[in-house]
Design a protein around this nucleic acid. Structure first.
Length: 329
DNA sequence: AACTCAGTCAACCGCTGTACA
DNA sequence: CTGTACAGCGGTTGACTGAGT
């Protein structure tokens, strides 16, 4: 497709912004807002291309930007999210309010990456490079690595379901979901998995369940305890805890087997309030993105990890790992 | 004091995805 | 369907700065 080159007009200025330029841009945006950056750059009289104006605004002039050193919690959040998401800075930014993706990226490249490397942890894979860690630390690192892989797959699968549910004919839950979904391409790009779509994961499981229970007369606020469980040896075992051997259980087991998610899915209780869950999910994926990671159980363990106790176990794994990094400062 | 070097970070670059005519 | 404009993303660059020699 035809693309206009960056700052096509060679007469446009490049390089660091002057305070006067900042002032012009700020004053214009405060008065008129920013719709079209190209038009904006022309109207302000700035000899800058629209792209440069946008960058200056989003990375520096925006009033809601927090500047200065990263807090310990912010650093922990970045490390956790990088393990899950990789170099998807915009996705990571969504969990760090008031920070820009550029700032996060710079901080990662100049500080955190080196710190991890120094510890003998590969900053890209978040796996230990060698025997730099003691056995217990290695265990933590291995747990982290496994959870990261699992979580990444799960997040993508969940996003897939959300998109799918948006396309389908509405149900009460989908109506809820649709109302809270922000029309953002960021969401699509950041969370969308590469095609072709693999089979569904846990949310798809829940969709199957939803279909079943929507037909039930006792639908609202049903809580399903011990719907499934897994044993210690990695072999996933779907147990019947009072539901009967329904077709939905078969579907569930097939999906779980297909993904071999038993090891990661260690929850003994999976408490799912479906209506609330769908709502929470949309909150997590689309609206609650400003919630600091450390303050929310939503990002890790939206659903499949089940209860708070289990979430705490997972968090403690993460924290052990992150603490290792902090100790090496 | 002069120079080198490494660290930092704002800004640039090239690209993709989306909307729209 | 095609081309254009635009927003936004992630990788990279280069100016600046401070520490070390």
């Amino acid at each position: 497709m035809g693309r206009s080159p960056y700052c096509e007009n060679s007469g446009l200025k490049k390089g660091p912004w002057t305070p006067e330029e900042d002032q012009k841009l700020l004053a214009y945006i405060e008065e008129y807002g920013h719709g079209s950056w190209r038009a904006l750059s022309a109207k302000t009289g700035l000899q800058r291309c629209g792209k440069s104006c946008r960058l200056r605004w989003t990375n520096y002039l925006r009033p809601d930007i927090k500047r200065g050193n990263f807090s310990l919690q912010e650093e922990q959040t970045i490390i956790k999210l990088h393990a899950l998401l990789g170099n998807r800075w915009s996705a990571i930014r969504a969990h760090l309010p008031k920070r820009t993706d550029n700032e996060i990226k710079n901080h990662w490249n100049t500080h955190l990456k080196k710190r991890l490397t120094k510890m003998g942890i590969d900053p890209m894979t978040h796996k230990p490079k060698s025997h730099a860690l003691c056995p217990s630390q290695l265990k933590d690192a291995a747990n982290l690595s496994h959870m990261a892989q699992w979580e990444n797959a799960r997040l993508e699968a969940e996003a897939r379901l959300v998109r799918k549910s948006k396309l389908h004919v509405s149900t009460p839950f989908q109506t809820q979901l649709g109302s809270s979904v922000a029309p953002s391409r960021l969401v699509n790009k950041d969370l969308a998995p590469p095609p072709p779509p693999p089979p569904p994961l846990c949310l798809d499981v829940l969709t199957a369940w939803q279909g079943s229970f929507t037909n039930s007369t006792s639908m609202p606020s049903l809580q399903y305890n011990n719907g499934f469980a897994c044993d210690e040896t990695m072999g996933m075992r779907v147990e019947d805890h009072g539901f009967g051997k329904s077709n939905k259980f078969s579907e569930l087991k097939e999906i779980i087997d297909a993904y071999n998610i038993g090891e990661a899915l260690k929850a003994e209780n999976v408490n799912v309030l479906l209506p609330n869950f769908m709502e929470d999910l949309s909150d997590v994926l689309f609206e609650n993105s400003n919630e600091p990671y450390g303050n929310s159980n939503n990002v890790v363990g939206i659903s499949c990890y089940g209860d708070f106790e289990e979430n705490n176990k997972i968090d403690s794994h993460w924290n052990n790992m992150v603490n290792l990094v902090n100790c090496s400062k």
